[in-house]
Design a binder for these strands. Structure first.
Length: 429
RNA sequence: UCCUCGAUAGCUCAACGGUAGAGCAACCGGCUGUUAACCGGUAGGUUGUAGGUUCGAAUCCUACUCGAGGAGCCA
């Protein structure tokens, strides 16, 4: 008997197959029982009539929610069944009867669910989110690999802050202070000088006590870096990547997006190129909308939402004031008061999903910036070396995976876009 | 760190100074096409903790604990 995943059952209509999974729900009306079985790929309805299968009917009455079972039987198309396919089981093997399951099909609060995240991920919406996350990650790799980018993983344990600004998680490295990485970027620059076009993809850590729906203590970031890419090349690469991710998700996840009630039209109508707005233009836009904003300040979350609300596609905001950006950003040669950096703001108020730009490639200016920002010169000696031995113009960016998935799925909170979120004040499970 | 809100049955909530209640889940029974099925019944509580006000507190006051949303910071 062939073991088939529920999502592939439509290719087996009329055949007898085996499905392995868990009982998601059971509905009985005395002489007929409907089982809803899940296997991680989808939901399958099974129907058993008492008159036709008395022993099986009795067996099934004792199967509880989330019990693990292996069922065999013929599947056929059935419009009344969720998922479109239905099985009439010939045999059901019980692997394990589940104890009284805490997560019911009714509504639950966030605290209750977060405390049971290990079980919450079994529910349809959470599974759909995680499947889409997997596709987003795969699309990132596929896209960059096709563009001849080499995967060069950056370290997680680092000796010093990359940007010197944010609060980091400190750890004891055999008596020496070390920190969990908040960005692989500086290492990426070194790797790009070795391999040309590279990316890293892994978790990053921020110890700030951020407590919003857009923040996690541990989140995943795709960071790409390319030698000889200028600012414009960089933005073009980013928008093509995002476009590729959108198309991959639309193509592979029609069912999941439906489970999530996502308005897919909003994703379908996004086209290239993405709109571009300079920081100065963005400030003007905010003022037009009646918001108080002074040139030279950084945008807050409500400002970002106000800007992105003007566009259907993600929008680049570029050329920020040099003073509010990181030390490694390259000033615009035609206006040194601003840098060749850009943030990509997702539509519908999901905020910044990419930050990137052209890097400072001039040795003396970089050394000056390191001093200005009061960064320890010794710790950055290797980084300035990159400008000493064959420096080239180069650019890169970092894409926040959870925010991207939240936007694509139309989910309120990023904590649902990662299997086991690390949020402020919650380290369990 | 700051601001706002919340904590009552396993879950989601009601009771707003006068005997703690409903729906769901659990358990028992009924129902031949259910869609979070439905119908009847049973059981389920030191109202987050500690103090105070009151004849009387889930309800009012104070502190604390835990959590949520937001700000700042960021992806």
């Amino acid at each position: 008997m062939e073991w088939v995943l529920i999502k592939n059952l439509k290719n087996h209509s009329g055949q007898e197959v085996e499905v392995r999974g868990w009982l998601y729900n059971k509905r009985s009306s005395g002489k007929i029982i409907f089982l809803i079985v899940r296997d991680g790929s989808g939901l399958l309805q099974c129907v058993i009539a008492k008159k036709e299968q008395p022993e099986l009917f009795q067996l099934v009455e004792g199967i509880t929610q989330e019990s693990s079972i292996i069922i065999t039987g013929a599947v056929r198309e059935e419009p009344r069944s969720p998922g479109g396919m239905e099985m009439q089981p010939k045999d059901i093997r019980i692997i394990s009867i589940a104890e009284n399951y805490p997560i019911t099909l009714k509504e639950h609060g966030v605290d209750f669910l977060a405390e049971r995240r290990h079980l919450w991920i079994r529910t349809p919406k959470q599974s759909a989110l995680l499947r889409i996350r997997s596709t987003v990650e795969q699309a990132c790799r596929d896209f960059l690999n096709r563009r001849d980018f080499v995967l060069a993983d950056a370290p997680i344990i680092t000796p010093a802050a990359c940007e010197g600004t944010t609060t980091l998680f400190e750890l004891d490295y055999h008596g020496e202070k070390a920190y969990l990485s908040q960005s692989g970027q500086l290492y990426n620059e070194a790797a790009a000088m070795a391999l040309g076009r590279i990316y890293c993809f892994g978790p990053t850590f921020r110890a700030e006590k951020s407590k919003t729906r857009r923040h996690l203590m541990e989140f995943w970031m795709l960071e790409a870096e390319a030698a000889f890419f200028d600012f414009e090349d960089n933005m073009k690469l980013q928008e093509e990547l995002i476009y590729y991710i959108i198309q991959s998700v639309l193509e592979k996840h029609a069912t999941d997006l439906k489970i999530l009630n996502r308005d897919v039209e909003k994703l379908q109508k996004i086209s290239l190129p993405f709109p571009r707005l300079s920081y100065t233009q963005a400030v003007e836009l905010l003022r037009q909308k009646g918001r108080q904003f002074e040139w030279g300040n950084d945008f807050g979350a409500p400002d970002e939402t106000a800007i992105s609300d003007n566009f259907d596609a993600p929008v680049f905001v570029h050329r920020f004031p040099t003073k509010i950006k990181a030390f490694y950003m390259k000033p615009d040669p035609s206006d040194p008061g601003v840098v060749l950096g850009a943030d990509l703001l997702a539509p519908e108020g999901y905020g910044e999903i990419i930050g990137g730009g052209q890097r400072l490639d001039d040795l003396s200016l970089l050394e000056e910036r390191i001093r200005e920002h009061n960064l320890p010169g010794e710790a950055f000696a290797w980084y300035t070396d990159l400008r000493r031995y064959g420096t080239v113009p180069h650019s890169g960016f970092g894409l926040g995976i959870e925010r991207t998935v939240a936007w694509l799925c139309g989910t309120e909170h990023v904590r649902e876009t990662i299997p086991f979120p690390r949020t402020l004040y919650r380290l369990y499970p």
